[in-house]
Design a protein around this nucleic acid. Structure first.
Lengths: 193, 193
DNA sequence: AGAATAAAATACCATTAGGTATAAAAATGT
DNA sequence: ACATTTTTATACCTAATGGTATTTTATTCT
């Protein structure tokens, strides 16, 4: 049971439930290691969560950055984001990063700072994508890029949160599609089959 | 310090922070009463939270029901809801009901059941409103009423949540207006001044 | 006024949290 | 093979939680 295995166990536990509801005792038990071992490796609960959120960012959130930097057009990119939010099986229990951000006040200082960093990076990635769309004439209108970026991020986060609460996936897709219609008007409203 | 005063103190405390982060000890201290007094009145923490959410529903959520049943047209009603979500000073620290629903797994069985009831009632109110708009020809399109109702509720909840996290109020209004544009297209996009 | 009863406040209980000291075990160097 | 060092596991600590037993205070009835 090496270090990364422990991180995988912790990440899965935090991800499935709520990061604030999983104790270090529970994690040591699930990972089959002793509490002092965990504290020697990660220093504190805060250190463990920091390592977990970093791992999550590089393993999961990176996929979203890939979509945003793939150089696709606005519509294609939005569709890819919709697919990710609505269909990726990893998001069935919600997004760990969103959960952490939603319960930010319960995090230690290290993890909270990192969450803010990642949040800013995500915001910047959305904004850069929209800016490039506008530059290429692919995104008409006068909506400020920063507002569009925030809106996009919030809508995707909302959809993933709804998946975690057991909402009907077809309806989630309808609502997210509807919300993003305002960024790139689709031909017609069509229900997901 | 009578019963309703205690409820007011508890409601304010739960509302300002997070219902899961305020202990009964803290509430007794704030209310200036003894713990046994509180337990004699409300039975348990669950009982207290149940009484609080009931009080919140009748004091605050009722305002939203009033808006929905005022018999205004679609656009006017949406504007009133936007104003409520973005400007009502009581929503500056978020919506207590939304906070409870978001942290439902941390509630006791009584409170959780009531939260579900209120949620269903809200959903029904949104749906009834949209249905009447459609019947009157005020809401064209083929979007199912239930989807529209859910969408409307989620967008308003999202806006209020953002107020609690200190987001720029002008931007929140822009985003909520943008999201609701899809239900009743406004003439043009205009920034809130 | 004095006895009986209702109310309140203090003190307490069991459990769990994050975190650590200490004892046992294993691995390593010679 | 033995001594040393490092790792592991058990046991413990302090603080805080929801909830309650007990004692003290206030009130009411006669």
């Amino acid at each position: 049971m090496n270090n990364d295995d422990v991180l995988d166990v912790a990440m899965a536990a935090y991800w499935q439930g709520d990061p604030a509801d999983v104790s270090v005792n529970a994690i040591t038990q699930m990972a089959g290691i002793s509490k002092p071992s965990l504290y020697r490796e990660f220093g504190s609960e805060d250190g463990l969560k920091l390592a977990v959120v970093d791992r999550y960012a590089e393993q999961v959130l990176s996929d979203m950055f890939v979509i945003l930097h793939a150089g696709m057009g606005l519509r294609e990119t939005l569709d890819a984001l919709i697919d990710f939010a609505c269909d990726d099986p990893r998001m069935e229990t919600g997004c760990l990063f969103n959960k952490m951000r939603a319960g930010k006040h319960r995090l230690g200082p290290l993890t909270r700072a990192r969450v803010d960093e990642i949040d800013a990076a995500g915001q910047a990635a959305y904004a850069a994508f929209l800016q490039s769309c506008r530059d290429l004439g692919d995104w008409p209108g006068t909506l400020p890029v920063t507002v569009g970026a925030k809106y996009l991020g919030e809508q995707i986060g909302l959809a993933i949160t709804q998946r975690a609460s057991g909402e009907d996936p077809a309806r989630i897709r309808e609502m997210l599609t509807l919300a993003l219609t305002v960024l790139a008007r689709h031909d017609a409203y069509h229900t997901a089959s």
